[in-house]
Design a protein around this nucleic acid. Structure first.
Lengths: 208, 208
DNA sequence: ATTCTAAAAATTATCTATAATTTGGACTAA
DNA sequence: TTAGTCCAAATTATAGATAATTTTTAGAAT
């Protein structure tokens, strides 16, 4: 998680907290005390509050007025919900991206996929996986859609990390290759349905 | 727009500003000066900033660090984007809602539809339209999905109001009836595809 | 006339301080 | 013991003040 120095303090705090929540360093349901966090970052609590607002819109924390914010929990139902939303939105993005996909872009995606295969831990694999999806979908040119998908990826990553914590081995991603092959062959529909199925299987990998 | 007294000041400001932006009272691209707004609401600028954050997550304003926020513009591309996202997400919600739909719920939806036919202005029609969609989709029990759809409805409403401003006549909504008929007959797929087409036509009603 | 520079004004972002609300615990009464 | 209530501590929410940044304006040089 790169916290650019040009960002506002609120943005930096938001990114750092998001990374912690996703990594599972802060457990679900834990209260986030604004004064404590402000002290840790050497800031006042005003930018902390703004960071909270951002995290809330990403679905990482829930806030009750006058009672503070706590890390959002996630049930199996929510994991499934996120997976289904991803399937719906990523297929939409893919269909709109296809006309703009070039050979070079597909090669980039393949490289990202190989990076995933080489990943030594789940964090590295997740980053490569996200890159793969982003490279393929970005050419759709629909910024609002891409942002929504990105937030859903964040939610997915949280679930992924919570499940695979200790033992983990890089799965060679057959689905990714199948998607690439279909795209190279101009079979948009096959690519889209494969992507939809692929995303939904993520929600089924059992935690622990 | 009901601003409950129990809400925080930030929430009240956010709702009021959202209503103004949707109604077109503040034009796209206009700067929102936090001090001026704070003064108008008799508050300090801290809750104003938090309200801005909320509006940003809804896509109603865009913010550049250290340069303030301005009302988001919306091109025809963005309108189409929102329409396509709605089509994808609302069909997903509908498919998941169908098993929980009862006769009573369908009757409620029909009543909302009639309210739309009786609407005297575009605002009343929009509210009835949103109610219709919400009644049908809420039983899916996917809160994150429903919130996303609601934000997209807000964006759609902005476009709708900008187009039809002065002259307007209530269109009897054939699509809504077709959806209800299909649901009553247990034809989920027909209902879903009709809904998808219905949502996308909204993006095609030409403004002016 | 135009463009570059610098000072001034306006605005945003943050900090410190104050007010309001909630939570937890102790004490009292049933 | 068990509620119930009240007080104190902790925490959130807002206000007022300060610092930092950007935009505007004026002036000078080409």
């Amino acid at each position: 998680m790169t916290t650019a120095k040009s960002d506002t303090i609120a943005a930096q705090i938001s990114k750092t907290l998001a990374a912690r929540i996703i990594a599972g360093e802060i457990e679900a349901g834990a209260k986030l005390r604004q004064d404590h966090i402000a002290e840790e970052f050497g800031a006042s609590h005003v930018p902390v509050r703004e960071a909270f607002k951002r995290l809330e819109s990403q679905g990482l924390v829930v806030s009750e007025p006058r009672r503070g914010v706590r890390v959002a929990g996630f049930s199996v139902d929510e994991v499934r919900e996120v997976a289904e939303m991803r399937a719906a939105l990523e297929t939409l993005a893919l269909r709109n991206a296809v006309p703009h996909l070039t050979r070079a872009i597909l090669d980039q995606a393949e490289e990202a996929n190989r990076a995933g295969d080489r990943a030594l831990n789940v964090q590295a694999w997740e980053m490569a996986n996200r890159t793969f999806h982003r490279i393929l979908l970005a050419p759709c040119g629909m910024p609002r859609l891409l942002k929504a998908i990105d937030d859903l990826h964040t939610a997915s990553a949280r679930f992924l990390f919570s499940g695979w914590r200790a033992e983990w081995e890089a799965p060679t991603d057959r689905d990714h290759r199948a998607i690439l092959d279909a795209l190279r062959a101009g079979q948009t529909e096959i690519a889209a349905t494969t992507l939809a199925r692929h995303v939904q299987t993520i929600g089924q990998k059992k935690p622990k």
